[in-house]
Design a protein around this nucleic acid. Sequence first.
RNA 1: GCGCCCGUAGCUCAGCUGGAUAGAGCAACGGAUUUCUAAUCCGUAGGUCAGAGGUUCGAAUCCCCUCGGGCGUACCA
Length: 688
Amino acid sequence: MKTVVDILEERISAAMAAVGSVGSPQVSGQSGFPAIVRPAADAQFGDYQVNGVMALAKKMKTNPKQLAEKVLEKIDVADICEKPEVAGPGFINLKLKPDFVAQNLLQINIDNKRLGIEKTDRPQTVVVDFSCPNVAKQMHVGHLRSTIIGDCICRLLEFEGHKVIRQNHIGDWGTALGMVILGLWHMCMAEKRGGKPYYENDIEDLKVYANNKQELKNICNRIRIRHEEDWEEDFIEWRGDGKKRFKPFLDNLKTREDSAIWEKITILYQYVNLLEESLVGLGLTTITRVKKKSYKKDENPFEYISIPYESLSRHITAMMQNIDDKDNEQEKDAWERIRKISLKYFHEIYRILNVKLSMEDVRGESDYRKNLSSTVNDLLRHNTAVKSNEAICIFPDGFKTKEGKPLPFIIQKSDGAYLYATTDLAALRYRVKELKADKIIYVTDARQKQHFEMLFKVAKMAGWLKDGQVFHVMFGSVLGDDGKPLKTRSGENVKLKELLDEAVERAKAVVEQKNSDLPDEEKKEIAKAVGIGAVKYADFSNNRTSDYVFSFDKMLAMEGNTAPYMQYAYARIKSIERKAISKEVDVEKELSKIKSLDLAERAELDLAKQLVRYGEAVESAADDYRPNYLTSYLYELAQKFSTFYTTCPVLDAAPAKRPTRLLLCDLTARTIEHGLRKLLGIEVPKQM
RNA sequence: GCGCCCGUAGCUCAGCUGGAUAGAGCAACGGAUUUCUAAUCCGUAGGUCAGAGGUUCGAAUCCCCUCGGGCGUACCA
């Protein structure tokens, strides 16, 4: 079934074409005559309005009002609308016939699965890249948006009939790798030293003195001296070979519990990050080793160099580039363990969030590690990439540095390490070539806009992409209550798990207060649905591109335009169905016999018209990747239902009126359920 | 400096290739419950769409300038 707005658009565009081509042949040669049918701005104008006539009049250099009159003569919508009217400077107002609404509703009613919404006639293979948390890091509120918006986009596209391939491009390569190895090293040394782990004290000190440069330098130097002591001491054959302590520690890691490792590694990751940030500009150096290009048997294969202390993890990253080598076996095992544990925790969050992402959807940066050199080489061969300051770069047009020079897209650093630009290119190629993607969608925050613009441009330069094949679906940053961006500095992140737990807890308190008679088990289920639903809905209902002000109170408020409002409407309908038995009303029977509807009451007709529009809302949300179009539709639906509910008794209605009202209830429930559960991944309890 | 995004009611935000008198929620105020769940409904009040100019039948929306905020800007993601 086509949406009403599409039918109207088609018919009125045809009428406009007929009128436009008569008076002005040159206009007809252009790209058609869009009627631009929109929901009416004000109910007094009817249900839909045509905006396109005035634009056409402008093109034809004619009077819009007169043109609208001419179009009116050609319009054939008598089966759908009351007589259309010209209004204002050249609008055409359309009002649906109650009969048409009733017939439409009866058709939707028959289609249990899709509520009368057609599948696309041009199905595509769409790759959606979303969520993408970082290994060894707790997911925080910043990951919430990518995860649930991405999931919603997948659900919308799947429902439209596209083949969707989810890709969880987790951060498990590049710098993350070096930081985890360094973090594990600190874990080892802290355990050797015993007592309260030194990194916990260091984190506190670094935070306290973040703005006192002199003291910060003293602290960092103290850390560095301890670091070098530990490093110097840890060897059997050659300085710093790690055979005395670190290597046995890595072996021992296998015997430890996941949860114990997870808790520590997330803190250590923060530690390494915070230490490196603190070190910037302090000028401290440290000793490390690099493998010689050639060496004799029994000779120390390493030589020792001095590097800036803050670049140590990056140095390790470069060394670990060959993680698949035999020498690095232990590091590789440890790394895979950390990766596995991290994924376990991410998937726990996905389960709680009701997000459809499985282990099969995980294809992280590390999965492309074997394609990185060929990606770079191919670009060098095409002369797309060039060497500049020892780094391998591509200079796409239109991007400039601070100094006004061309801005490079760096795909290999001067130390030989690859970057996320390289993995992104390799991933993009994989998606086009192997996954046969017609379309690739990246769901990330707006700060990466320039990166993606460059990525897409480079991929086009290399001939790997067609126009219009990739989209960056971006969203705003997460802000704190003070309106400033929530920095990813350690400690300031709000852990997603804790946020979700609190949401459920608050919901539980409300359920307890409103409906204390329910069995405990049910109260728990309701609290989960309401709490998680509220958090997700708060995010969906915001404009995607705006910044996101994070506030417990706002997210967890359960009044007004929130998920619980819709869940409540649903629960009321289910309650009517339960009550029907005691009132000797056979709902199933009345619904199955229904042949026509009686939409006499204002509230009935308003609700019916809203129900007819569900397909339009889904379509616009999917077309623009904007879940908030869907949430505002559902909110309006619930509002119209609530008005209907208070003015139109259902079970106590006259027997002749009752089937219509039962159908309105049933269809409202099905639409809310479909929108919330199927498309937004929000549960709808039968009671609350 | 340059590039991108943003500025709408006291607060949080919608506003869909430019469309009619700019809409919601929260907070405030007034009303509604012997009747299917009041996590509700009905109503009142609240605006120089940051400011100035331009484009046109018509601008919150497009262009220019100013002010204010954010992000990015060669080896982090």
